[in-house]
Nucleic acid binder design. Structure first.
Lengths: 216, 216, 216, 216
DNA sequence: GATGAATGAGATTTCATTCAT
DNA sequence: CATGAATGAAATCTCATTCAT
C-alpha cells in the first residue's frame, strides 16, 4: 500500500527537511511529530527508526542548518579579491544566506531559548566557524598590510558586528515593522540595509584616510 | 476552602509575571497553563477568570514586556544632555534594559516566530516606539545643528543599528559562544561590547572632523 | 454526557478495583490502562488525575491487597480459643482468604517477579505482618505453657510453613494439575488439602505425647 | 552482510536461552522480541524463522524449563539408597534445582497466571511428572514395607507438600522478606529452611515409633 | 470570587510482525 | 539462510479548557 524499500538516504533527507520546516515554524515544543512524518510522506515509525526521538531529530536539523549556513559562507578566502571587496562580499553573502534560509534563524533562536542545551550535545557543530574566522583573519591581515584597514582588528568582533546587523533585521522583522512603523520586507529596503551595513563596517574597519565621505 | 479574597490587581500581576517567565523560558507551545497557575499560587480557574485563554495571556505578557522596555528607555530627551552623551546613554540603557530583562528577548523572538500574529491584534503596542523615535530625532537634529553629527541621519536606521548590536549579542549568546568559541557572558566581555557599539555608532554618526582616532 | 461530579472516593475505589483485576489477570506489563479505565467507567484522564502513573496505580493495588489479606487474618488472638484451635483457625482462614481473593496471589507473584521493586517504595506495607506474627507468638507461647505445643517454635517458621502450603496449592494449581494429573479445584479436594495442612502443622508443633495417631 | 552460516542448532539454542531469560525476567507481555533477538545475537527475522511467533517461543521456553527441572530430579529411584535417604535427597535436589534455575519459577508462575493456556497446547509436558511420581511411589512403598514409613502415604500429597515448601520460599522471597522482616537470601537461611522441610516431611511420613525427637 | 473534578482530543513512543532483496 | 526497511495498531501520558458547587 505504501511505498516499500525506497532509498533510505533519500527518506532520511526528506524527514530532515520536513523536520526543519516544522521546528522552524513552530518551535521544538509546538512541533508535531505527526506532521513532520506526514509531510515527509513517511510513517511515524520510520521516523523513529531513523532518528531515535524528537530531540535527536531537532539536533539533526540544527546540525544540518549550521552546515548549510557555513557552506554558503565558504568562498571568501579567494586570494584574488581585494580585502575590502572580500569583506563586502562576505557581508552580502551572510545576509543573502540568512534571507534565503529563514529556517536557520528560527532554529537558532529556538536553540538559544533552550540555552544551547541541544547544541551542547552535538560535537559536529563546535568550532564549525573556525575556518570562517580564519579566513576573516586573513582578510583583515592582508588589508592591514596594504594599508586599507586599520590595525588590531579582532575578526570575532568584526564578524559579530556585521552578522548582528544582518541577523537581527531578518530575525525580528515582524516586531520591528510594527514597532518602528516602517516596512522592512521590500527588496529595496533590504538592499538599502545591506548597503548600510557595509558603510558601517567600512567606517569601522578602514584606515582613517580611506574612510568614505560621510556626506552621502 | 474559604475564599482568599486577595487584592485582584495583585493576583493579576502575579499571574502575568508567572506567565512571562513561563512563556519566555519555554515558548508559547511549550508553556503549561498548569505551571503558570501553580507558580502564581492561583487556581487554574482564576487564571481563566482573569485572562480568557492561553493566547490572551501571552498577548498580555507581550504587552507588558514592551511597556517595561519602553519605560526603561524613557529619560533621554532630557535637554540638558549633550547630544553625543544622550546617544551614548541611550545605547547603554538599551543594552542594560535587555540584559536585565531576558524574558523580553525571548518573548519578542517568540512573537517573531509567529510572524507577529499576536501583536497585530494588540492596539496598545503599535507606535509604542513613536516617542523614542521622536526623541532620537531631536537628539540627532540638535547634534547636527551644533555640528557634532553629520546631517541627514535617519533616526530609524540609527536606532536599528545599535539595537541590533545590543539585541543579537544577548539573544544569541548561547549559539554564538559555542560557534565562535568565545565567552560572552562575563561582565567585562559585555562592557567591552557596549563600548564597541558606541564606537561603531560614533563613527557612523559623528561629523567627519569629530570622528575618534581609529588607532586606539 | 458522562457522569460529572461523582463521589470522588467512590471513583477512586472503582479505579482501584478495576486495576487490581487487570494487574492480577495480565500482570503489570500486559495490563492496559485503557481497559482499567473503561472497566471503572472512568475516563483515562481521571485515572491519571487520581493516580499519577501506571506504576503508582500498581502500588496502590498491591497495598490494598495486603490490607485486605491482613484484615482477613485479624481475629485470631481471641483469648478464649485454645491455642490448637486458634492455630487451626488461622490456617483455615489463610487458605480461605487466598482462595476468595485470587487477585492477591497474582499480584504478589507479579511483585516477586519484579523482585520487590514496587513494594520497596511503599512504606505502608512494611511490617504489616508484625501484628499477625505477634499474635502467633502468643498462641505458641500459650500452647507451650499449657504443654500442648513443644517449646522453641519460631512463629515465622511456622507461619511460613503453613502459608507456603496454602499459597502454592492455589497459586500453581494450573501447572500442578497438568503435571500431576490430578484435579485440585473441587471443593472436596481443597478441604482435604486444608485438613492435610493442619495435620502437617500438628505433627510439627504438638508436643510429642499429644501427636495425632498416624494411622488415620 | 555475509551470511554467518552458523550451526542452526546452536542458533536455536541461543534464541531459546535468551527468550527464557527475558520471559522470566519480565513476563510474557513485558518481554520484547527485539531484546530477545539482540541478546541472542540474531536478527529478528531469524528468530521468526525458527519460532513462528512470540507465543510459540514462550511455549518452547516453558517446555525446555520443564525438561531441565525433570532432568534435575531424575536420579532418585536408585535402589541402593535407603528410602529415607532417597526422600531426603529428593527434597534437597528439588530445592537446589529451583534455586539454581530461577527462570523456572518465573516461567511457571507466568504460565499459572495465564491459567495454563500455553501448557494445554503442549503435548510434551503432560504427564511429564509420571516417572517422578512413580519413583516416589516406589520409595514410599519400600519404606512402608521396611517399617520406616507409615502406610497409605499418597505420593502426590507428599510431593506437593515438600515442593510447596521449596517453591514458595524461593518464589515469593521478595515479598516475604519485606512483610516478615527476615532475610531469606543468605546460604545459611536457605540451608536451615531445607533442614526444616526435611523435619516436617519426616514427621509426616515416618512410622510413629521412628519419629524424630521434637526436643531438638 | 474561588475550587476540585471532569473531559476530549491528541502527544510521543513502542512493538510484533512482514516484505523485498 | 540472512538482513535492513517498513507497517499498522496501540500504549502511556498530557493539556487546555469547562462544569458544578
Amino acid at each position: 500500500m505504501a511505498p516499500r524499500s525506497q532509498n533510505p538516504e533519500e527518506v532520511k533527507e526528506r524527514i530532515l527537511r520536513s523536520a526543519s520546516d516544522e521546528f522552524a515554524r513552530i518551535g521544538f515544543d509546538g512541533a508535531r511529530v505527526d506532521r513532520i512524518a506526514k509531510r515527509a510522506r513517511v510513517s511515524k515509525n520510520m521516523l523513529y527508526y531513523y532518528y531515535k526521538s524528537k530531540q535527536q531529530l531537532f539536533i539533526a536539523a540544527l546540525e544540518k542548518t549550521y552546515e548549510v549556513l557555513r557552506e554558503d559562507q565558504k568562498d571568501f578566502s579567494s586570494p584574488e579579491l581585494e580585502p575590502l571587496q572580500a569583506l563586502d562580499q562576505l557581508i552580502h553573502q551572510t545576509f543573502i544566506s540568512l534571507e534565503r534560509n529563514p529556517n536557520a534563524i528560527r532554529l537558532l533562536n529556538e536553540e538559544n531559548r533552550h540555552e544551547g542545551k541541544f547544541l551542547k550535545r552535538s560535537s559536529r557543530v563546535k568550532n564549525l566557524y573556525n575556518p570562517l574566522l580564519q579566513s576573516m583573519q586573513n582578510i583583515l591581515y592582508q588589508g592591514c598590510k596594504s594599508g586599507v584597514f586599520r590595525s588590531n582588528l579582532d575578526p570575532v568582533i568584526v564578524y559579530l558586528t556585521f552578522s548582528s546587523l544582518c541577523y537581527h533585521y531578518l530575525s525580528n522583522q515582524f516586531t520591528l515593522q510594527i514597532a518602528l512603523n516602517r516596512s522592512l520586507e521590500s527588496p529595496t529596503a533590504r538592499q538599502d540595509w545591506v548597503k548600510h551595513i557595509r558603510e558601517v563596517i567600512h567606517m569601522y574597519c578602514l584606515a582613517e584616510h580611506r574612510r568614505p565621505d560621510s556626506s552621502i
